[in-house]
């Protein structure tokens, strides 16, 4: 038997008990190696893809990034130069209004799920629908807002775009708010209730405060999510190469749609601007995501 342990090919059919210490059948070893090498390789591919995309953005974006971009407005077809000032301001406004609309609704709905109706059937349904909306195709939300606001009122507007963004942001805020409120220890609620505080005071003065940084994280995550959204703005806020009107009616220029149109255009200066815009928007979003992650880690450490 001692010789057969040295000769792995004869060991193939042997009972596991007879496989001597340290010696593993080649088939098993190969399967194991394949798994380890394969998984490592796949991870390298994933990290490499991120690196490649970021490198491309940096190389082509930095060369196109000039101070003029922050001053000049988007150029018309067949002109030279130009900037992204109107698109950047438009994006800020659309995202800002979107977050302003989404925050109260999202936080209150999350509070309802976590504080008022933890275990009710209705809450389970809302939670489920919210999870669905979290991964709903954003172009459908664009269509919905088009049917709801653009078609009946006969025109594109920044308001419609902001509402479309808000609809995308709400599920993110609902989810994180509920999760963060659930992390608040019940002792705090009980202590406040024992002092005679009504439920609404317990929530606003105790649990919201305890979960504040977590809720803010959710809002930042929602901001990162909607800042780069393009599809829902295509038929709501539209896009153009002018300064938008202060009432936000008519098309409102915005960075994502500008990038989309300029990148696919045949004009050299448009493509340059698209790269610069892509770099700006990606850097903003990555910074927001990293800030949110750091905040969450701090919250978890507490």
């Amino acid at each position: 038997m001692a010789t057969s342990t040295l000769n792995p090919s004869e060991m193939a059919g042997a009972a596991p008990r007879e496989v001597a210490w340290g010696r593993v059948r080649p088939g098993r070893r190969i399967a194991d190696r394949t798994l380890k090498v394969g998984c490592t390789l796949f991870t390298v591919i994933g990290v490499f893809a991120l690196g490649w995309i970021l490198a491309m953005l940096l190389v082509r974006g930095l060369s196109a990034l000039t101070p003029a971009i922050f001053v000049n407005i988007t150029p018309g077809p067949g002109t030279t130069g130009g900037g992204l000032a109107n698109a950047m301001l438009g994006s800020l406004i659309l995202t800002g209004i979107g977050i302003l609309v989404a925050t109260p609704i999202g936080v209150l709905a999350g509070t309802y799920l976590a504080e008022y109706a933890r275990t009710s059937k209705l809450a389970a349904l809302v939670r489920f629908i919210n999870d669905l909306l979290l991964s709903a195709p954003s172009i459908l939300i664009g269509l919905f807002v088009y049917a709801l606001f653009v078609a009946p009122f006969g025109g594109y507007s920044g308001w419609a775009g902001s509402i479309a963004l808000a609809i995308i942001a709400i599920p993110v805020i609902v989810r994180t708010t509920e999760d963060m409120l659930r992390l608040v220890p019940n002792g705090l609620r009980e202590a406040a209730a024992a002092l005679g505080a009504p439920h609404s005071k317990v929530i606003t003065l105790v649990t919201w405060r305890a979960a504040r940084s977590g809720i803010v994280t959710g809002i930042i995550l929602a901001m990162a999510r909607i800042a780069g959204e393009t599809a829902p703005l295509l038929f709501t806020a539209l896009n153009n190469n002018f300064w938008f009107s202060p009432t936000l009616s008519g098309g409102v220029s915005n960075l994502p749609v500008t990038i989309y149109q300029f990148a696919l255009s045949p004009y050299g200066n448009w493509q340059e601007l698209a790269w610069a815009g892509a770099l700006i928007i990606t850097a903003t979003i990555l910074v927001l995501s990293v800030v949110a992650r750091v905040l969450i880690r701090k919250e978890a450490a507490r």
């Binding site: 109260p104 609704i105 999202g106 209150l108 709905a109 509070t111 309802y112 799920l113 504080e115 008022y116 109706a117 209705l122 809450a123 349904l125 809302v126 629908i129 919210n130 669905l132 909306l133 709903a136 459908l140 939300i141 269509l143 919905f144 049917a147 709801l148 609809i167 709400i170 599920p171 609902v174 009504p198 439920h199 609404s200 005071k201 929530i203 606003t204």
Partner: peptide
């Protein structure tokens, strides 16, 4: 508690809005 009831109603309405959005998307399509 008037404010408490209002606050609760606000929470409830926001949660219902989530349901309404999904129904609205389906309806408009």
């Amino acid at each position: 508690s008037g404010t408490g009831a209002v606050f609760r109603a606000l929470n409830f309405a926001s949660a219902m809005l989530v349901l309404l959005v999904l129904a609205g998307i389906l309806g408009s399509m």
